[in-house]
Design a protein around this nucleic acid. Structure first.
Length: 469
RNA sequence: GGUCCCUUCGUCUAUCGGUUAGGACAUCUGGUUUUCAACCAGGAAAGAGGGGUUCAACUCCCCUAGGGACUACCA
């Protein structure tokens, strides 16, 4: 039997980056073992679940490239089946109807005994004949003796005394299932073999095992992964920066980089830091997941991002770029722009940490004349440079081979003749060619746009510099 | 409060009883340079504390401290 993993988010907001990593681990494990990765929306909480959130989760997952097998399941849609199992558990003596009202339970909690102990329903061992004709919930009849032991792939052996578990509610008084019942039934029905989830669910593995056992079902393999914190060690929240997957898209990170970085948070394969998704799939295993929580580090993410922008294929980069542009609510690149961009990809992908950096560098090819200098770059276009530019222009017109080497030689010779450093000429030229110094190499740009365009831009710049001081 | 989980450089981590405790990011120093968010070289930087077990412990056990999760008719 092949492995089946699942990601089961509740649709109450965007896709949290921590959830995204959980999804990634499940996806990686499924792909690594040739199994299936399923998606289930845990929408049994009708108050908080929204379609918009469901959509956001789909979008986030799709952006990250975490494709799920088959259609996404709606947990709520399966409520009849959940109820059926709850009643089956009454029949086999592992659950009972509890008529305690909300007020009674609240009163218990407010009492001294209720402060720390869990609610003990008087209906657990009551004679069914005495049951009133009133709404009821179905509770698990949790064992009072013995221990529950699970073997978690990440956490190892974990043991609880059964007495620690309360008679949790399985089916609410409105006949909808609670999370605890629904997960178990769904995971069983969906054939889930490995449950990889946040370790905030660790104790639930014990509780849920009780249900599996009550129904005589096979208990899946558990792997509870530690949570991701912010850089201060506190729960990752808004003030740490972005928490939603979509935000990372809007910041200009490639999905490939996110997968790499997220995979590396809590999981490792020796000293490998930078890797492709294919490699991650090949290397991924549950045993190498760390037990300690990790902190999200944007600096490191940037470094990983830079690597992927440099190494990913042209098509992937271009697709990522278009996607990023879309996230900014901007018009996609035209076919013409794409062709132009593609021709300079090698020189603009270098030194770019994020997609917007790359786009900045591509200004010289995507923009149009005249290239007005950025305010803080105007200083390069001074009178000294103006003089040099006048002597440079005819030289450029005569260059025999318009190549990087030739141009560089020409610039160096001129610099020597002028008695200045190469930077005094090449640097202002960047501003002439692109309006900014945050551009690719001067010579690379000149070669990319050609002689005529170079001369034309010099002419444009001359106009700026002609203005008397 | 109770139960459970966690603890190696600032950060992410390697180490499966024997290592000068390694790598990466960040940081510092020097170099290079056509900007730099680039590159090159080098440096500083860690086993929470205390007990055991063992010839030998970061590694196994216990205690303490600190952090976290759970403790809902939420998931």
């Amino acid at each position: 039997m092949g492995t089946v993993t699942r990601f089961a988010p509740s649709p109450t907001g965007y896709l949290h980056i921590g959830g995204a990593r959980t999804a990634l681990f499940n996806w990686l494990y499924a792909r690594a073992t040739g199994g299936k990765f399923l998606l289930r929306i845990e929408d049994t909480d009708r108050e908080r679940s929204t379609d918009a959130a469901t959509q956001a989760i789909f979008d986030g997952l799709r952006w990250l490239g975490l494709d799920w097998d088959g259609n996404a399941y709606s947990q709520f849609a399966r409520k009849e089946r959940h109820a059926e199992v709850a009643y089956a558990m009454i029949d086999n003596g592992h659950a009972y109807k509890c008529y305690a009202t909300k007020d009674e339970i609240d009163a218990f909690r407010a009492s001294p005994e209720g402060k720390y102990g869990s609610f003990q329903s008087p209906w657990r061992d009551a004679d069914p004949a005495t049951a009133p004709d009133a709404p009821y919930v179905i509770r698990l009849k949790a064992p009072r003796d013995g221990v529950m032991e699970i073997h978690d792939e990440v956490q190892g052996k974990v043991v609880w005394k059964n007495a620690e578990f309360d008679d949790m509610i399985l089916l609410r008084s409105d006949a909808t299932p609670t999370y605890m019942l629904a997960v178990v039934v769904d995971d069983h029905d969906m054939g889930v073999t490995h449950i990889i989830r946040g370790d905030d669910h660790l104790i639930n593995a014990g509780r849920q095992s009780l249900i599996y056992m009550a129904m005589g079902w096979d208990i899946p393999v558990f792997a509870h992964i530690p949570l991701i914190f912010g850089d201060d060690g506190k729960k990752l929240s808004k003030r740490h920066g972005a928490t939603g997957a979509e935000e990372y898209r809007a910041m200009g990170y490639l999905p490939d980089a996110m997968r790499n970085y997220l995979a590396r948070l809590g999981w490792s394969h020796g000293d490998d830091e930078l890797f492709t998704t294919e490699q991650a799939i090949e290397w991924f295993d549950l045993k190498s997941i760390n037990k300690a929580p990790s902190r999200f580090d944007f600096k490191k993410l940037d470094n990983v991002s830079k690597y992927h922008i440099e190494t990913v294929s042209d098509d992937v980069l271009l697709a990522g770029l278009q996607d990023y542009i879309g996230s900014q609510d901007r018009e996609p690149l035209t076919n013409d722009a794409v062709v132009k961009l593609k021709s300079v990809l090698p020189i603009v992908r270098e030194r770019s940490k994020k997609l917007p950096d790359l786009l900045d560098k591509a200004r010289f090819i995507l923009g149009a004349r005249p290239f007005a200098p950025d305010v803080d770059e105007v200083k390069y276009l001074n009178s000294v440079f103006n003089g040099i530019l006048k002597r440079l222009t005819p030289l450029l017109a005569e260059v025999t081979t318009w190549s990087k080497e030739e141009l560089e030689t020409l610039f160096r010779d001129l610099a020597e003749k002028e008695g200045v450093g190469l930077g005094k000429i090449a640097q202002p030229m960047k501003v002439v060619l692109s309006g900014t110094t945050k551009s690719p190499s001067t010579f690379d740009m000149m070669v990319a746009i050609g002689r005529a365009e170079t001369l034309a831009r010099i002419n444009d710049a001359a106009a700026y510099m002609a203005i008397p001081e």
